[in-house]
């Protein structure tokens, strides 16, 4: 593997590095906060893309992994006194295990049935956590601010969590690229194109799909922990908001499903648009409606997303845009 042969990889990682370093260089806290959200969106979208874009399975309830991982990690920090990093890994592990179990059960379903089942899982989990007293039931859990002393105070904690998110995002993008250009990725894309033919080609589809589901669940679980730790509280409604799931899908679609750079572009565009709409006095209330119109326009007219469209339009850029 000669890495210079892969311009798309360098471009992708380069963009993430450059974007992620802007707040570090400028030292701007405002910029750091918005970049934190963008990086988080990129990680979520890239993770979802492994299942949605590569394997062609639509998970409508993907936020369940963010929520569950976040809850498990938050519990370990707030109630068991764990350090953030092992807790974040534990959150990722919890999400991975959930995906393994769900994968075995749910991935037999195809098309709309699978999509519906993932909504059901997310709602079942949300309503269950609502009743689960260990995790604080409907009130959720709060973090005593004293905990932040271990991380050099609240201000320092915010930079620390930013760096962690930055690191996870780079892992997400590398993973997205690595999967796409691997033997495993080839198997996933075969499933997306024609699952029966894939089986006849010797692809152990249940195993490969479950692997993809697990891979797409781990990083959302980890960043769930980072996000709620930073927020110092977690509640069922915020952790399992079905709407966030669909926003993830919109980001992937906007950028181009099944491409490495699509989720990156889509997440950045969507977050930028959303923060613009939220801060604009004219559109503040209509933010959701405008996002809806945008989504409809993409689906009707550019179903392959920005990157897909560019790839189609400018064939010369194929090796750069993946």
């Amino acid at each position: 593997m000669k890495s210079w042969k892969y311009p798309a990889l360098w471009l992708t990682v380069g963009v993430v590095l450059a974007g992620g370093l802007i707040p570090v260089i400028t030292g701007s806290k405002i910029m750091r906060e918005s970049m934190f959200l963008i990086l988080m969106a990129v990680t979520m979208a890239s993770s979802l893309n492994i299942l949605l874009g590569y394997a062609g399975y639509v998970s409508f309830g993907h936020i369940v992994f963010f929520g569950l991982g976040g809850y498990v990690g938050f519990y370990l920090i707030a109630e068991q006194g764990w350090n953030l990093i092992p807790a974040a890994l534990a959150g990722g592990l919890a999400s991975g295990v959930l995906a393994l179990l769900l994968g075995i059960a749910l991935l037999r379903l195809r098309g709309a049935y699978f999509a519906l089942a993932t909504i059901g899982i997310n709602e079942a989990m949300r309503t269950f956590i609502n009743n689960f007293n260990l995790f604080g039931g409907p009130i959720g859990m709060e973090l005593n601010f004293i905990v932040y002393q271990d991380y050099g105070g609240a201000a320092n904690m915010q930079w620390l969590t930013y760096w962690l998110m930055f690191g996870v995002t780079i892992i997400a993008v590398l993973m997205s690229y690595g999967v796409k250009f691997s033997r495993f990725g080839l198997g996933l894309m075969s499933i997306r194109e024609d699952e029966d033919a894939a089986m006849a080609m010797g692809i152990h589809t249940p195993k490969v799909k479950t692997m993809a589901y697990i891979l797409s669940a781990i990083l959302p679980g980890i960043i769930g922990v980072i996000f709620f730790f930073r927020n110092s509280s977690v509640q069922p409604a915020g952790a399992f908001r079905l709407h966030r799931s669909i926003e993830m899908i919109v980001m992937v679609m906007l950028g181009g499903q099944g491409t490495v750079q699509g989720p990156l572009v889509g997440a950045a565009l969507y977050e930028a648009l959303r923060s613009y709409l939220l801060t604009s006095p004219l559109f503040k209330d209509l933010q959701l409606a405008i996002a809806g119109v945008l989504l409809l326009l993409i689906i009707l007219f550019v179903p392959s997303g920005v990157i897909g469209w560019l790839r189609h339009r400018f064939k010369g850029l194929w090796r750069v845009l993946e």
């Binding site: 080839l186 198997g187 894309m189 075969s190 194109e193 024609d194 029966d196 033919a197 089986m199 006849a200 080609m201 010797g202 692809i203 152990h204 589809t205 099944g258």
Partner: peptide
């Protein structure tokens, strides 16, 4: 089917559905 292929029994389909978004080479590599 995937276990059968593993033993060395392959097949083609009446209706051909290649992986359209991949190159010919990648299709065969799969």
């Amino acid at each position: 089917p995937y276990d059968v292929v593993g033993l060395g029994l392959a097949r083609t389909h009446q209706i051909v559905r290649p992986l359209n978004d991949l190159t010919v080479l990648e299709n065969v590599m799969a």
